[in-house]
């Protein structure tokens, strides 16, 4: 039975990985030529590497992920940038870049596709995905968004109305980072997506079995998505707007 020399294993591996310098490699190969156990290990490592590289194929990152991140980089870092963006355009070299960011922040422009809202909601329903910050306290959830978004979403507590706050998370809708506030009605989670904008609410809509309710208020766009029935979701929207 042949065995490799225990003190040579890591050297043989380092040689295999191209991490050994020429002198050390030469000395090691002289040993391997005379040691069947070490020669066997060297051959095994070579076969294993060849097979791993041939058979274990790396999947590329999903195109949707790439688009979201490209958009996030274009819009600007969420952290600490609000002041910088709000300032009049500086006369430095970054002026043009700031101007581009400013335009994107102030004019998200087009209506976020309904399907994206529902997709964001469905994705969040997977275990452990619903909330990044888990709290029923609006005074915990609201500050959590500071530094994560370039705007401050309003957060309201609707527990007394039968829609307790569960938490919040970041999401990506219409190529921008948005706030998702999570509420519940009995067993039904409600995502309330919020981002700055003025596009008018689409009213009640149904997509893939989910109800969507939208409105715009105070320079913020609100879109609620849930499997809750349309009347209850509409009531949620009314109560939200009624609260100060």
């Amino acid at each position: 039975m042949t065995q490799c020399c225990p003190d040579k294993r890591l050297l043989i591996q380092a040689h295999h990985d191209g991490e050994l310098d020429a002198a050390a490699s030469a000395a090691l190969m002289a040993h391997v030529a005379e040691c069947p156990g070490c020669a066997a290990l060297q051959a095994e490592l070579a076969v294993l590497s060849r097979r791993l590289r041939a058979e274990v194929v790396a999947e590329p990152a999903p195109e949707t992920l790439r688009r979201r991140l490209t958009a996030a980089a274009a819009v600007g870092r969420p952290a600490n940038d609000t002041r910088r963006l709000a300032r009049p355009i500086a006369s430095f070299g970054v002026g043009a870049l700031l101007a581009a960011s400013l335009v994107l922040v102030l004019m998200p422009g087009r209506e976020a596709p309904m399907d994206e809202l529902v997709a964001g909601h469905v994705r969040a329903l997977q275990p452990g995905h619903l909330t990044d910050v888990l709290s029923t306290d609006q005074h915990t959830v609201k500050p959590w968004f500071d530094g994560r978004l370039d705007f401050a979403p309003p957060v309201k507590d609707l527990a007394a109305q039968g829609f307790p706050l569960v938490g919040g998370r970041l999401d990506y809708i219409g190529n921008r980072a948005v706030a998702a506030l999570v509420y519940r009605r009995d067993r039904h989670p409600i995502d309330l997506f919020v981002w700055p904008g003025t596009e008018p609410g689409p009213g009640a809509r149904v997509r893939q079995g989910y109800n969507v309710e939208g409105w715009t208020e105070g320079g913020m766009v609100f879109r609620a998505v849930s499997d809750l029935d349309a009347a209850d979701l509409a009531a949620f929207g009314r109560m939200w707007r009624a609260l100060p």
């Binding site: 039975m1 042949t2 065995q3 490799c4 156990g37 066997a40 290990l41 051959a43 095994e44 070579a46 076969v47 294993l48 097979r51």
Partner: peptide, 12 residues
């Protein structure tokens, strides 16, 4: 390591 009596190609 298990007994490398077989050639690596055969084993894998």
């Amino acid at each position: 390591l298990a007994d490398p009596a077989d050639t690596p190609e055969v084993v894998l």
